[in-house]
């Protein structure tokens, strides 16, 4: 199989830690499925690269020296780019991941994970998969529950099925186990999770608008 015949995804990396940057770059470059377009270490550099290369995939760290990786993720939807954002998460970083998911990220990788697991995760995302952890599922449930108070504008509430799935995730079940438990396809479970991510993002944007209006900014 030639490189062209494989699913070939263009990709940029924004990471300030030199060791990690090096490791990730190596990992991506040596993988046939990916085409690494740029490696940046700052928010400004990242934004410029995003605009210039319009990659299929953005791998972004959150804590950058000149700002937050969240702004990079937000730029994707602002510029209407066809790009999937993925957060490079550190050691035990669920809350940061959650913030990134709210901003529109579709998945996350753990920077110290095995190489194979990281590339698998990226490919899984591109094939419609959605990684999630029990803590993130729990935070998600809390977020939607909290958003259903009367003074909040919630255009997107969770369906009962989605709540059920989040509960099972939070109890430690894998997507495969959930699909067996609920007697649905594995792919359906991951689609649900992706949809939940989208709802989360929509709600957080609506909330931001709402807040802005309340403050008289709009």
């Amino acid at each position: 199989m030639t490189k062209e015949e494989m699913n070939n995804y263009s990709l940029i990396i924004v990471e300030d830690d030199a060791d990690i940057r090096q490791r990730l770059s190596y990992m991506i470059e040596s993988h046939d499925a990916f085409n690494l377009l740029a490696v940046e270490s700052t928010l400004a550099g990242g934004l410029a690269a995003l605009k210039r290369y319009k990659p299929d995939i953005l791998l972004a760290d959150i804590g950058l020296p000149d700002g937050s990786g969240i702004d990079l993720i937000k730029a994707i939807s602002r510029w209407h780019l066809d790009c999937e954002a993925m957060v490079i998460s550190g050691f035990q970083d669920e809350y940061t991941v959650f913030d990134a998911l709210e901003a529109g990220a579709k998945a996350y990788i753990l920077k110290h994970d095995k190489s194979s697991r990281i590339t698998d995760a990226i490919l899984m995302m591109m094939e419609g998969g959605a990684p999630i952890s029990p803590v993130i599922a729990r935070l998600m449930l809390q977020r939607f529950q909290h958003a259903q108070t009367p003074d909040q504008v919630v255009p997107e509430a969770l369906t009962e099925r989605q709540i059920k799935i989040l509960k099972l995730v939070s109890q430690g079940f894998s997507s495969k186990e959930i699909s067996e438990k609920l007697d649905i396809k594995y792919y359906t479970v991951t689609t649900h999770i992706k949809n939940i991510y989208t709802k989360l993002q929509v709600n957080s944007r609506t909330e931001a608008l709402h807040e802005a209006m309340k403050l008289g900014l709009l």
Partner: peptide, 16 residues
């Protein structure tokens, strides 16, 4: 982690 005062989530994380 306050989220993990929920015991089933705590076990879920342990599994991970």
């Amino acid at each position: 982690d306050p989220v993990l005062s929920d015991l089933s989530t705590l076990l879920g994380m342990m599994r991970l």
